[in-house]
Design a protein around this nucleic acid. Structure first.
Lengths: 193, 193
DNA sequence: TCGCAATTGTAGCGAGCGCTACAGAATCGC
DNA sequence: GCGATTCTGTAGCGCTCGCTACAATTGCGA
């Protein structure tokens, strides 16, 4: 019963996600977003409400695309060992991709930043880590061969999650795929995965 | 040949370090620092040059105290296994300390933040991680018993460093000492440390 | 005691931040 | 067409940021 949106909402969200991913929450200003999304200040506050609201939408979008694909790869592998290795391979592929927005997982990045002051964003970031750990645990649990009978699935999932978070931080400083692959394989071997 | 500083330089540096540690680089404003250090704007820019310069001084101070102590604990243990466990214990003790400025390693925190845009700060943060890895490696290397003959010292040090970085991030979201101790012991056991 | 040099307090610059008020433009049912 | 409603562009608010210019103050050597 009134005027229609003159811009492509989905495309605008994609572009905003890319920008947040590349420059972080605090590092991305409203004016940067407007320029990238090619919309005006009025449209922004009318249909996206606020920077925080937009960021939450973008986190969801990141989850549905990048994270979901990684999880699907892990889940569809023949066994837990292969699934977990597929997870790391996808992660390293992404880190190798020169066109990627940044050497960083958007969820992991959100854990740090002053974002932690904001309870909603903090909770959202925490959920991302919990989800990852749960995915590891369930992948290990439903493995018919139960490859690492020595170590309880929960503990193993926690170790892997912690290690993955460390990898993101290390990659930010100095990424060397060969080294990362090698040390990861040694770790997985030691853990009996 | 002229006027003397009316404030305690060392004490001011300590207070600034505490504040940066607690709120991060970007999250700490000049006015916050001035209030905490109990000095004026003029004094600040005269004797501390800039926020960036002060931050580098504070990082050095943090290194000389907190990090140095952790390293000393690791180095002075009877063997590598005990040293590495002492390292983690000191880290967990710190995370348990309610009076500590934040659940965070100041060096690790500096790896993230938009700080990475600044080459000097980035390099400084990278050095912190390299140092940690080198300490792990040398501790493992000079162990008479060479406890983990299975795995090369360098790879082991890299895995531990990565894991420690992950721990810092996990602790930021949800810290549970019992869980962390347990999963860390399982990891060390698996690695033969 | 005087002059020089170092330290200090004040006031404000220029820029960016997220956000809002508001008027004009577009699109619907009628 | 008309009115109601929704979208858009502009202008600017109040605030904070890191930093600087500059004059006043202090303490030293001569």
């Amino acid at each position: 019963m009134a005027r229609k949106l003159t811009f492509d909402y989905d495309q605008a969200l994609d572009r905003a996600t890319e920008l947040f991913w590349r420059k972080g929450y605090a590092g991305t200003g409203i004016r940067d977003l407007l320029k990238e999304m090619e919309i005006g200040e009025g449209s922004f506050y009318h249909s996206l409400k606020s920077k925080r609201h937009l960021f939450l939408l973008c986190l969801a979008r990141y989850d549905e695309t990048v994270v979901a694909k990684r999880m699907r790869l892990m889940a569809s592998a023949p066994d837990a060992g292969a699934g977990i290795r597929a997870f790391f391979t996808h992660m390293f592929d992404y880190l190798d991709d020169a066109k990627a927005p940044s050497k960083l997982c958007m969820i992991a990045a959100t854990v740090e930043e002053e974002v932690l002051v904001d309870p909603e964003l903090r909770q959202r970031a925490a959920k991302g880590l919990k989800d990852l750990e749960a995915q590891f645990a369930s992948r290990l649990a439903r493995d018919p061969q139960s490859p690492s009978a020595r170590i309880e699935d929960g503990a193993l999932a926690a170790i892997l999650t912690t290690y993955v978070q460390g990898l993101w931080r290390m990659a930010l400083v100095d990424y060397d795929r060969g080294r990362f692959e090698q040390q990861t394989e040694i770790l997985l071997g030691s853990l009996g995965v």
